[in-house]
Design a protein around this nucleic acid. Structure first.
Lengths: 195, 195
DNA sequence: CGTCTATTTGAATGTACTCAAAAGCGGTGG
DNA sequence: CCACCGCTTTTGAGTACATTCAAATAGACG
């Protein structure tokens, strides 16, 4: 059975047997333990990491050590600091495993090589970026349009699985509120649903 | 002299004379007057619009009619609802000219045709999306990490030209604050710089 | 000019934050 | 397997950042 990384690509472009094994030759499998870092800010993000299993967070750290989660990467999604990966500048973001996870990595140099050798991969990556940008635009809209409670509601709808897999602290950080306040929102919610 | 749309493409991929005229054959030039709409929410975004001159806003409209500006499109940048353009679903966003503007449009059908006929355009569009996504990720980080005053400061740094071209009301909408509060922030700023 | 919209300013209000303390939960080692 | 330690969650009181509403002023446009 082919690697799920390959299956992901084949959703958008079809590959020959040779191309598949060529791509697979670049993949490095890696296991991460919960709380293990994949990328520390200021390092260069040299790898694109496809998530086979588990869940990572991509985040920045503020003045007082608070984490600001830019996005979550779960199964069949990607973890990288795009800017650093492309430009080889020091990373803006940190990446850390939130569960024991398994990933498949390809280095930025090998990635460029692949795009040059198999140009149709440009299409696949273009579509990947397209989807990420659409999600990112929606996130901006939500942050501009909705209050904390509404954003929490939308989050629960969009990531029903994450709701239980990760701590409220992490969810609060993603929503842009304090964990204390999220706790209060949840308490309210019960009150209005139980009577 | 070649169209600046073409020049933009050639920053990333080189084109033959034939390819250039093929691309140009699809471009429709259009002039917009200030406050003219390019896209109304719920319509389908059938065109990718390259901004030759002027400035547009891409935004949503909330419950009470407030505008939430997702991004500004200025010279040498793009205006479209990406999701609607790709999927042909009704648009999430509105697009409106903030100044008299000149744009060059290509329809989504012709765009797909171009990508198929000139595959190296995939690379150009991939890079365009890459840059947009990087900017979008930074915007999310700013909204999570910074308070209103800091976001205003960053905005002024990033778009020094816009600061004077558009109304404070629009800037406030982009920053996610009320125009009244932005006015107060600016008043404070003078106080601390004048003494 | 006159009208319409944008900006400024102030007072009252609200949403979300800080700080602190208590309770809950999960993992680890004896 | 239980006890303990550290971290997360809950709860409450006080506070701060930002909003709402209102009214006055200033600017822009036909």
């Amino acid at each position: 059975m082919t690697h799920s990384f390959i299956q992901n690509i084949q959703k958008h472009v079809s590959l020959s047997i040779e191309e598949i094994s060529y791509i697979e030759s670049f993949l490095k499998l890696k296991k991460l333990k919960k709380k293990e870092f994949l990328l520390q800010g200021k390092e260069i993000c040299t790898n694109l990491s496809y998530i086979d299993k588990g869940c990572l967070k991509i985040f920045t750290i503020g003045e007082n050590g608070e984490e600001h989660i830019i996005f979550f990467a779960i199964e069949d999604w990607w973890a990288l600091d795009l800017k650093s990966f492309i430009t080889k500048e020091p990373a803006r973001f940190f990446i850390e495993a939130m569960e024991d996870s398994e990933i498949s990595q390809i280095s930025n140099d090998n990635f460029q090589l692949l795009l040059d050798k198999i140009p149709k991969l440009e299409k696949w990556f273009r579509i990947l970026l397209q989807n990420a940008l659409i999600a990112s635009e929606n996130r901006i809209d939500h942050k501009l349009s909705l209050n904390a409670e509404q954003r929490y509601f939308e989050f629960s709808k969009k990531y029903p699985s994450l709701e239980t897999r990760i701590s409220q602290r992490q969810i609060a950080s993603y929503l842009g509120i304090t964990p204390e306040f999220l706790s209060k929102l949840r308490a309210q919610k019960w009150k209005s649903k139980k009577p």
